[in-house]
Amino acid sequence: MSVRELSYGDAISEATVQAMELDSEVFVMGLGVDDYKGIFGTTLAAHQKFGNARVIGTPACENAMTGIAIGAALNGKRPLLVHARNDFMFLALDQLINNASKWKYAYAGKSAVPFVTRGIIGRGWGQGPTHSQSIQSVLAHFPGIYVAMPSSPYIAKGILMEGLRSSVPVILLEHRSLYSMKEPVPVKPYMYPFGQGLIVHPGKDMTVVATSAMVKEAVKAAHILKKEGIGLEVIDPVSIQPLDEKIILTSVKKTGYLICADTSWASCGFASEVSALVAEKGFRHLKGPIKRVTLPACPAPVSRELEEAFYPDYRDIVSSIEELIGRDLKIDLEKYREVDAFKGPY
């Protein structure tokens, strides 16, 4: 299989174009999908190739747009909705929750409305209270929709292509901070399934379940701790709903420890969900308390100094592990910090 390096954003773009080539019913819809920026470049190639007929710029109407996708999907179309920030999806919750997630069930399987919604999570550069939330747990609470958070270019391409042929309404939450991440991605179309997690870094001592941008923080923590003789097993569930319970429980059975690192808050969040899963079904394997690495319980601030204090990273994961083993490993964590090369605007 022919493979080359592709960025996260380019992988999404390629998946979009390939899905549109494979299925003439697929079309893209959203505010700005047809403008010169093309949602951080992800819709530019599709727009260039398929034009306004299949890449439809819309007014600002998140809720109606979602209902419109439902009506189109009901008639065999395959809409791909894009929200440049997932925070705007709060405006579409009525259609996502009251219509899309209930559709197949309430109509007894006689009709279905499969479509894909992409929403992008912001982080840093002063994105602030309403442009950097991470809404996976809100969405994954409701049966009837799939929610996934691709953490790498490979997964981003595969899961978008899978979503566009799924029989279920799908929500993909991408992370803006991952857009420049590069890795080898197959040229050909391929699918990454829902409900399948991934062991990103194998280890025998402790399990870290990490989502989205927290996956790379967890991997970084794993590299640091390896030098200390501690093996972290980093698991990326990829799919928030349906959840690959088995991969998590199998790992915890082996390690006896669980740390959940999520991009959102702790309260009623995904980290809490994974904790509950392990407490319910893996309790006897636990050798210590479960740790959650999540956002502090306040909205995202704007000031750089406050952002520093707000966002958890590899240092918080290492600290939580020090707490679990009951000693200070005396690692100079600061030396592993990367310079934030981002120049904005975000």
Binding site: A64, G67, I68, A72, A73, L74, K77, Q95
Partner: peptide, 15 residues
């Protein structure tokens, strides 16, 4: 709730 769904069906008819 069904108003945009009707509009979406109409969009499909047009497409």
């Amino acid at each position: 709730g069904m108003v945009p769904v009707a509009v979406g069906a109409a969009l499909a008819f047009q497409l």
